[in-house]
């Protein structure tokens, strides 16, 4: 491949740029690359770009003293900066603050709207059922139907167990819209 600047020498510096969310590849020879103020020897890649963006977002916040490390796979943020690859799904949670701006830059979005695995949508359904039961429980307690209330409470307990299982299998995720805390309270009230 020839250099895109001079068109004469072979391109040995490969640079990926992101402009307005669009990736662009630039191929230059070493003399042209250093003329443009880019280090010659190094091979630029998407990961170098990622590293650049990540440290920029970091310095904007005043920088961080210690290198953050993922507890699950032991990848550090600076290792991610040089490789551009995560070590495990938990990295997305560990490095969340640094990653979200980067993800935003690449995709122009930070919210998934596509397919959801059935297992996860099952959990969402469970949470909805649970909320409905809790509302019903309140109502039965209000009209002092304690026998019915006891039944509902058993159902709630079963659902909560199921949900716990589902959550344990669930990858670490930013808190969903469901509010388990609040429902816990209403459950207590019913018992009082």
């Amino acid at each position: 491949m020839k250099c895109e600047n001079c068109g004469k020498r072979d391109a040995t510096v490969h640079l990926t740029e992101i402009k307005k969310g669009a990736k662009q590849e630039i191929h230059l020879c070493e003399p042209c690359a250093s003329e443009k103020g880019l280090p010659g020897k190094a091979h630029f890649s998407i990961s170098d770009l990622l590293a650049g963006i990540t440290s920029a977002s970091q310095s904007k916040k005043g920088g961080r003293e210690k290198d953050v490390q993922c507890p699950t796979c032991e990848l550090t943020l600076s290792q991610f900066q040089s490789s551009g690859r995560f070590g495990c799904p938990d990295c997305y949670t560990t490095f969340k603050d640094d990653i979200l701006p980067l993800v935003e830059k690449i995709h122009d979005s930070s919210q998934h709207v596509g397919k959801v695995p059935n297992r996860v949508s099952a959990e969402v359904t469970l949470q909805k059922d649970l909320r409905n039961l809790q509302v019903e429980l309140k109502r039965t307690v209000k009209r002092e139907d304690y026998e019915k209330a006891a039944q509902i409470r058993d159902q709630i307990r079963i659902l909560e167990e199921k949900l716990k299982g589902a959550v344990a299998a669930e990858p670490p995720a930013p808190p969903a819209k469901a509010k388990p805390k609040k429902s816990g309270e209403s459950g207590k009230k019913g018992g009082a």
């Binding site: 690859r85 799904p89 997305y92 998934h112 596509g114 297992r119 990858p171 969903a176």
Partner: peptide, 21 residues
């Protein structure tokens, strides 16, 4: 199979350029 998935970022991939769908 249990796929790594986050409600916010979708299917989690080794490289952030593939995350989401």
């Amino acid at each position: 199979l249990d796929f790594a998935f986050s409600p916010q970022l979708g299917y989690l991939t080794a490289c952030p350029t593939n995350v989401g769908t």
